[in-house]
Write a protein that binds this DNA or RNA. Structure first.
Lengths: 337, 337
DNA sequence: TTGAAAGCGCTAACAT
DNA sequence: ATGTTAGCGCTTTCAA
């Protein structure tokens, strides 16, 4: 016996007014007399009424839902930012619909379609580049969209993020400053992941500058998991000349490599230095602590929410914002032996 | 120039058939002639049509949305399970709506209301106890609901989880086996958190058994954060007699305490042993590695999705399942000096 | 195999 | 301050 949930009409009957008044009472309480308002509120409570979302969405053409499509939830890389994003939305009575893609552009397209067909008023996406059909779909729907985890000054799109290329350069510079000449890079898989590609490109640019006498002995791309990181370490450490520093595309890779290095008897940073990227919680707990790039996750999530909300409420009023990263020095990077 | 998204009617015009046929073609393709079907498909593609969710929800009274309300997203404790949960749902074309509560029951109630009013067909909740009004609301709506992260055999509700009490007992037993007699417990805040309460109760029961000569010098409840963990450590280590082992309510607390202990010059486990709970990724990276309780997160997420989906599709067909935890021994627990 | 028509629950003019 | 009414886009009988 599934009791059908009460409708506006039911509340109206109970309170002895018309449905329209109930609607008003909910949406613009100041336009209904205090007496009726109280009566209506009582009826709502008595019946346990909650507005039906479909009906409302149909009538207003707004859902108060924002969709977010992120590469992974398991990975704490995005968790903090999304949490902050959601907290701001919740304050504004906006609900967050989340999809995750496992770093697969096809899957991303699917998730975007799903969220949009569920009526998302706006979309939060990670990264800037995506396949044409995805971009076209987004354009055709004219859904306010904001991209995080990256920043492009030259674009008409909305970004709240940082410049992965520059950040990549920064780590590489630091590694060179410490005197390393023979380095390897273990990056995330760049195909379909512009953040990974940008970070890598930044690192490469700095190290490949001819006047610094440094060289990259290997660039290895792999998935963001501890297991893949361990395998990557095995591959990279076997090169000759053996690298004295390994720059990782993110902290998961870096932490996985540190662990593997120690398991194989390599000292970190004694035998090999390792740097990370993102500064997830893990970074301060591994031993040695990870020298890494701190990404302003929480701030990014909050600003993203604010700007996206603004853009939805008043198209054109959302702005791109570039956030800054900075390097956190811990023990995993030291001069070569 | 916001192009209104194409509607069923638009597609019908383009394909030269009625709206009803389009609807059929989408929902029960086998009931429409192959020729028309092709024509319709072409029109759909050409227009980039996606069904409007509100309309569909209104007409079918189903949304294909499942809501999940979890204590925190930032915290990797829940991330893995939710990720697994979502992957199963996505395969079934069900979308996940997520709310987080920051461990606050009032906020949980709000989130549940939001998700249900958005038409969630089912709900995933963490834990088993909640305030009466929350439970009443849930009951009144008769929304299929499944509880994770806990298990109760004696209930008519659906659970996919494990017994926190027993798991708490297990850690405590192990600590006693190692010979500790003077222990402290740093727990999460039990009020409104039955998992924390159960774990704590289990630990207390074992340690307080009169015949084992052990005693609890302090039970300290605090929030799940590294900072709170550090403060908790300071408090607990200052007791006299000083505890030789500290049992933490989860890995975040345990890791935070290990870090603090080392910063203060206490050896772990030399001066004090510390145990965790959950076995999050961090647990294997702290030094020493955390002796902790492994929770089958991924399995829990998957089974939860399957059972909840079953319950939604055929009320009564979802089943509770009890999963087992087991202790992972790493270096943070050793006999007292 | 297809079409016509009646809602699903809500909001937003427009009246009163 | 409140009521009336006409949809919003879709599914689903019921007829043809």
């Amino acid at each position: 016996m599934i009791a059908k949930p009460p409708t506006l009409e039911d509340v109206a009957q109970a309170a002895g007014v018309s449905a329209a008044t109930i609607s008003r009472c909910i949406n613009t309480p100041e336009r209904v007399a205090k007496g009726t308002r109280l009566r209506i509120q009582a009826a709502i409570d008595a019946l346990g009424y909650t507005p039906n979302f479909g009906g409302r969405a149909l009538a207003t053409r707004r859902t108060n839902i924002i969709g977010a499509v992120i590469p992974s939830m398991a990975n704490s890389v995005f968790a903090g930012g999304i949490q902050a994003f959601q907290e701001v939305l919740a304050r504004e009575k906006v609900t967050l619909l989340i999809g995750s893609t496992n770093y697969d552009p096809d899957y991303e397209f699917e998730q975007i379609q799903t969220l949009i067909s569920h009526g998302a008023d706006g979309m939060l996406l990670v990264g800037s580049k995506r396949p044409d059909r995805t971009q076209q779909f987004l354009n055709s729907r004219r859904i306010p969209t904001l991209n995080v985890w990256c920043f492009r000054a030259d674009s008409d799109q909305l970004y709240v993020g940082f410049d992965n290329f520059t950040a990549g350069e920064d780590v590489a510079k630091l590694v060179l400053e410490y005197g390393h000449k023979t380095v390897a890079i273990v990056s995330g898989i760049c195909d379909g992941n512009d953040r990974a590609a940008d970070r890598l490109a930044g690192m490469e640019r700095i190290i490949n500058q001819p006047d610094n006498g440094a060289r990259i002995v290997m660039v290895h791309q792999t998935k963001y998991s501890f297991d893949h990181a361990a395998k990557a370490f095995d591959t990279v450490i076997a090169q000759s000349p053996r690298p004295t520093a390994i720059l990782a595309g993110n902290d998961v890779l870096a932490a996985g490599m540190i662990q593997r290095a120690k398991a194989l008897g390599f000292g970190v940073p004694g035998d090999v230095s390792i740097t990370g990227f993102d500064d997830i919680a893990l970074a301060q707990f591994v031993d040695p602590g990870l020298t890494t790039v701190r990404v302003p996750q929480v701030q990014m999530g909050q600003r993203a929410a604010e700007e996206l909300l603004a853009e939805i409420r008043e198209p054109g009023s959302g702005h791109s914002v570039e956030l800054l990263t900075h390097i956190i020095k811990r023990g995993s990077l030291a001069p070569p032996a």
